[in-house]
Write a protein that binds this DNA or RNA. Structure first.
Ligand SMILES: [Mn+2]
Ligand SMILES: [Mn+2]
Ligand SMILES: [Zn+2]
Ligand SMILES: [Zn+2]
Lengths: 130, 130
DNA sequence: ATATCAGTTTAGAATGATTCTAATGTATTG
DNA sequence: CAATACATTAGAATCATTCTAAACTGATAT
């Protein structure tokens, strides 16, 4: 991302110091899966003292602008995904790590949804053992 | 379930008053998806004053004996599933409801898992719109 | 049956991720 | 450089869940 400030403005987000630092980290071209905690740790490593409140605010602001996807995989924390395309995941509970599955997968044999309900999206989660 | 006490003993669980009531509700032949809260509400309806601590303890005891499956679908609560067979779900976020998909579904195009990792299980979650 | 003891229940405290509050700081615009 | 709307923050609050430790009960042995 060359011009993060421009990128934030394009998405109706004021380019504050904190948002610029977080956006630079998240949108560096390498897709990431972060939690508030892992992001906080990364920011501490780069000596950016950004409060947890701001980290939560920023993740949600980015999410609302469609810059992040939310993943509800684990009932003890929320993951945010910089890959906003529809895709699936490998998940290692042991490592608490997600890995993107970007290839086309097809699910066959799906029954009809219940009356008056429409399918929004199909999510495949492949649990890994070790 | 005719003899719940026997069933509990078979699973190395003492048939206490509370466990009998909860098992009778959960294993009545109709598969259910419960949270501690929904279960507590059902028990209140049948005038069984069982403490939340016991509800949590019992759900986890049953889970550890393999009588329940745990579903991590929503980051704000844990669902327990009386259907312990491998199966998939429709999920309505609006209704906070899960519906079993028992038919055989096949996922094709799955890539190889990362080095040194084995696939444990594949979970398909079909999100419904309304 | 009664005693004994391990296992169970429970109220209430603790935990931990997340959200809220309200005071202070800053980006934007004229 | 104001004025103002928006953003950051420390700390409190929330809420599902887990923990603690005291009282209770089912199972087993006398
Ligand atoms: Mn987190
Ligand atoms: Mn619950
Ligand atoms: Zn992803
Ligand atoms: Zn189910």
């Amino acid at each position: 991302m060359k011009d993060i400030k421009h990128f934030l403005r394009q998405n109706s987000l004021r380019p504050t110091k904190q948002r610029v630092i977080i956006a630079n980290y998240l949108f560096d071209g390498i897709n990431k899966h972060v939690t508030a905690e892992t992001l906080s740790n990364e920011l501490l490593k780069m000596k950016a003292g950004i409060s947890l409140a701001t980290i939560y605010n920023t993740l949600h602001d980015f999410y609302e602008k469609g810059l992040l996807k939310k993943l509800m995989i684990n009932s003890e924390r929320i993951y945010f995904d910089t890959n906003t395309e529809h895709h699936h995941h490998f998940y290692s509970k042991k490592d608490q790590k997600l890995i993107d599955i970007n290839v086309d997968m097809k699910v066959s044999g799906l029954p009809k949804p219940p009356k008056n309900k429409k399918i929004n999206k199909i999510e495949v989660l492949v649990h890994l053992d070790n």
